[in-house]
Design a protein around this nucleic acid. Structure first.
Lengths: 199, 199
DNA sequence: CTTGCAACCGGAACTGGTTCCGCTTATGGT
DNA sequence: ACCATAAGCGGAACCAGTTCCGGTTGCAAG
């Protein structure tokens, strides 16, 4: 047992780690690396076959680990999404709740638009109700944080659920991200915020 | 009702009718008929090849007329979407503007959810900016009607653009339609309306 | 009626995601 | 060290959408 950190290796879950076989773990690492390179280079249009070849494995191996292309994308960007989530409390501490909420929303949309095709992955993440996908829970927590900060100061209506706000952001990503339209996204965020905030 | 469709036969345009060759017109009719049957039977999962075979033409013919599956879906349901648009003025005349707006929105979402996969077609319709697609213009007009009825009575904020509201509805369709979730759609409409309406 | 040709047609071929299955191998128990 | 076996592997095969192109044909001008 060499001191190699394999703590949470499984791609789409976290609660259980059944230890992965050594070669499988190596392949998973290579796949994620190849995927990151491919998606960065070619956007979401990068083909899974190329990614598998680049990683030196067969497509079967890729699909065993990542049951769909969307889930591969999700796994590839999980870290960055996590950073986004982590930023929520910081924003909430640094500025008035309404501003923090807007700022985070804009970062969210910007992120989804930047990672081309991330929106489709997001759709899966937000829609698929197998509870294994932690990403959704993390996002919901981040939104919840910002939202409760706002409600506790009377800046937001209490009836609004974090999950719904997250879904709304997903919807905005899906239409505004189809063709890069930052201005549309901003206006839709305005609309959404007016529905959330008091006054 | 009106003398039906034969006048403007082109599938995705209306401004210009360059008269279609007789056989081409016949094939187009058959394709739309086959598509309607197939989509009704199998949902949006119906394969393009089956539709072409059913219509007795090759896929090439289908693709000449309908450059993508989404556009075929759009053409197939154009009439029904038109009915939806036509309902807007009636609703506006029959009830207070805020209620009319909500009612129409719910019909819209319901329609998109019912016609499985229509949401994907909608994404194309709303996103594709080639001005040939009249459907988007019709939808925008319908929303505009309801919206201006509301603003003229002081029920809605004047800054809200019809196109943006339409996009928002598209976004709601895309997430709530992924997996049938009528309740989510209703809550998101509430949120949207609160952003649009005064008070 | 003949003829020229643009419009049209069909379907084979290509692309990209996903599944399937026979073979290989890491691993833990003996 | 050896074996049994479950986990893993590769890539051929499959299916759906889309493109391409050589052959066909409606149409109207002569």
């Amino acid at each position: 047992m060499t001191g190699n950190d394999r703590t949470a290796a499984a791609p789409a879950q976290q609660g259980q780690h059944r230890p992965l076989r050594a070669d499988a773990q190596r392949n998973e690492d290579r796949l994620l690396q190849a995927a990151a390179a491919a998606f960065t280079r070619d956007g979401a249009g990068a083909s899974v076959k190329d990614i598998a070849r680049q990683a030196g494995v067969g497509v079967g191996t890729l699909y065993r680990r990542f049951p769909s292309k969307e889930l591969l994308i999700e796994a590839t960007y999980r870290n960055e999404v996590q950073l986004l989530c982590d930023a929520a409390p910081e924003l909430a501490a640094a500025m008035p709740p309404a501003d923090a909420l807007r700022a985070w929303m804009e970062r969210f949309i910007e992120f989804m638009a930047t990672k081309q095709g991330m929106a489709d992955a997001l759709r899966v993440v937000l829609t698929d109700d197998s509870e294994r996908l932690q990403t959704r829970a993390n996002l919901a927590t981040a939104v919840g944080h910002l939202l409760s900060a706002a409600t506790s100061q009377g800046a937001a209506r209490t009836q609004v659920a974090a999950a719904d706000v997250l879904m709304a952001l997903g919807g905005i990503s899906l239409i505004s991200g189809s063709e890069h339209r930052p201005d549309l996204a901003v206006r839709l965020i305005d609309l959404l915020l007016r529905g959330i905030l008091t006054g």
